[in-house]
Design a binder for these strands. Structure first.
Lengths: 137, 137
DNA sequence: TTAATAAATGCACTTCCGTTGCATGACTAC
DNA sequence: GTAGTCATGCAACGGAAGTGCATTTATTAA
């Protein structure tokens, strides 16, 4: 039995051909992808199908959205310890100004922030822009 | 001599009627505004004019963009110590999940973050979502 | 004061992206 | 095998950012 197939089933997502392909695609790099990226990778498939595939993945906790400030939503695979669904995933994201790619720095958590009185934090997003490991080398 | 007028001139922005109005509008609350907000406030004015007005303000360091994760760009006045143009303004932004408004917490700077080897930070953006002062009271 | 120049404004239009409605096709359960 | 659920594909919509060009307004130079 295929591992991806059983993984999707464990997440209560029917492992259709399209979903297997998209999931596999997302595992091939640790870089967050836009819907456009995915469309380009599967030119034959319909935009809407890919859109809904990713939305399904999101609902089932397989991927999470990444907002890196480019204005277009990106998606990245959830890691083992990714608690997106519970109390949000507080790792940070890095966007490279050179190669334009966004990576999840999963092991780097957002530090504690002191807010002014009356403000209650529920979620946060930290994006750092600069030069990535690959481009600075 | 009008203070707003001379302020705009000091920023090398010609103080036209439209620009004075938009600037004044932005000073009336400390909440970041979308282009749509501004359009609604000045229904008679043309979209493009407002768009370019705000862009001009941005270029001249009068306002800065705020990306609060809603997908639509917002703008807020730069404060006296706002170094958007030099090495980026590292204050944080708070978006209220109740009233949907985004405020600049200018006095709250983003703490130092340790990045993995090879990563060079040039800019960062931290958005905290939750309940604001006004809505939690 | 007027002519020449530059800047600001307004209109029309385009593009990009996310999203939805609806019809068809595939799979599952009984 | 049939009914029903879920997945897919096509078409279209809507919001927001952005551009080209013509027109108006302001600034400067003669």
């Amino acid at each position: 039995m295929n591992t991806i197939e059983s993984f999707l089933e464990s997440k209560k997502v029917r492992p259709t051909a399209m979903r297997l392909l998209v999931y596999k695609y997302m595992t091939q790099s640790n870089v967050a992808k836009t819907l456009g990226d995915i469309e380009n990778a599967f030119a034959k498939a319909d935009r809407t199908t890919l859109y809904r595939t990713v939305k399904t993945f999101e609902e089932k906790g397989i991927v999470h959205q990444v907002d890196d400030g480019t204005g277009t939503i990106k998606y990245a695979l959830c890691e083992a310890g990714c608690n997106c669904d519970i109390d949000r995933d507080l790792h940070l994201h890095f966007r490279c100004n050179n190669c334009r790619e966004t990576t999840c720095l999963t092991e780097h958590k957002i530090p504690q922030i002191n807010l002014p009185d009356g403000y209650i934090a529920e979620d946060m997003n930290l994006v750092i822009k600069g030069i990535c490991e690959h481009c600075s080398g």
